[in-house]
């Protein structure tokens, strides 16, 4: 539904997007993850026809963004990362304005306004002025605005940014609901775990290039292979670190002292249980053995920190994805 072919965008000497190849299937939610300045917003802006690519092509459905932007605009609902609202309009008027701009009939506007305000839990605010709404409510209204013309594709640029935890959860639930409505959603974020819950596929972008792209299951499995474990012992932590470093499922010992060792573990939960038995058998008096940090976050940091590591992981993910598809 959304495809890019060697998409490039250059600002002077800086490559904002480099040879980006994306393929978002119809009816799926695709998470587009990257650090600030990685090229997410530029890519989404090109797809939303706000910007021309330097080279390469991008399609929404069969429409190409540079040659048929009008068709693309009709097919998408775009929500930028930061957007304003018209202060002197009521919520109802705000939605009606955008509905009319897309050529939606008055009767349908009324019907959709009711439905969408109900969906984003703003039905009681229908006659309030837009500037009287909280930030979270305005974000939800923005999402309702995107859906006024019932587009098959939604492009959401960090829709939950700047929201409090409750509003983030509400936004997440609404987006999950969109998948059930059959919408294709391309959503960007710089927080990988946030997307894992609602996305079917995830693409990780770094310095304008896609470093990983796979289904959430593959990414999660890969993330689980890089779990950070903290082992606390009563004594002999340094010696235990030596033992652990030689263990074939321990990919790295991060820190160690006399009572604590932090390591990256690449095995399964069964391997983890066996490691505990091995350490106990070796005479170490274990106080705690626990997982620390968000797995997906660790993977994200791992992917976006070292280029070489990222390339290795990308090829590994590509291999996993190919295996899964086969």
């Amino acid at each position: 539904m959304i495809t890019t072919e060697n998409l490039c965008k250059r600002y002077g000497k800086t490559d904002a997007v480099r040879d980006l190849n994306l393929d978002v299937r119809a009816g799926t939610v695709f998470g587009f993850v990257g650090e600030n300045g990685a090229g997410k917003t530029t890519t989404l802006s090109i797809l939303a026809t706000l910007m021309l690519p330097t080279s390469g092509r991008a399609f929404v459905g069969a429409a190409e963004v540079t040659t048929d932007p009008a068709a693309v605009r009709r097919m998408i609902g775009y929500m930028p990362d930061v957007f304003g609202v018209y202060d002197d309009l009521s919520v109802r008027e705000y939605l009606a304005f955008y509905g009319t701009a897309y050529g939606v009939t008055a009767a349908l506007i009324e019907q959709r306004t009711k439905e969408l305000l109900n969906m984003v839990s703003l039905e009681e605010k229908a006659d309030d002025y837009v500037n009287a709404l909280s930030r979270g409510m305005q974000q939800r209204l923005g999402l309702a605005r995107c859906l006024m013309h019932d587009p098959p594709v939604l492009i959401l640029d960090e829709p939950a940014s700047g929201l409090d935890p409750r509003s983030r959860i509400e936004m997440r639930e609404i987006i999950k609901g969109l998948r059930q409505r059959g919408k294709t959603v391309l959503i960007s974020s710089h927080i990988l775990p946030e997307l894992a819950d609602m996305c079917d596929e995830i693409g990780i972008i770094k310095r304008g290039a896609l470093v990983a792209c796979a289904s959430v299951e593959v990414v999660t499995a890969r993330a689980n292979g890089h779990r950070q474990i903290c082992v606390e012992v009563l004594e002999g932590g340094l010696a235990m670190a030596d033992t652990l470093a030689r263990h074939h499922f321990v990919s790295d010992v991060l820190t160690c002292d006399e009572t604590r060792v932090d390591l990256l573990f690449a095995g399964t939960e069964r391997d983890q249980a066996e490691l505990i038995l091995d350490l106990t058998a070796a005479g170490y008096q274990l106080k705690t053995f626990r997982e620390v940090g968000g797995n997906l976050e660790d993977l994200f940091l791992h992917l976006t920190s070292e280029e070489q590591a990222a390339e290795q992981t990308a090829s590994a993910l590509a291999g996993s994805a190919a295996g899964q598809m086969a």
Binding site: M79, F83, V85
Partner: peptide, 9 residues
């Protein structure tokens, strides 16, 4: 508000 306006038809 301009960005959103420019993505309408």
């Amino acid at each position: 508000t301009l960005t959103v306006l420019l993505t309408t038809p």
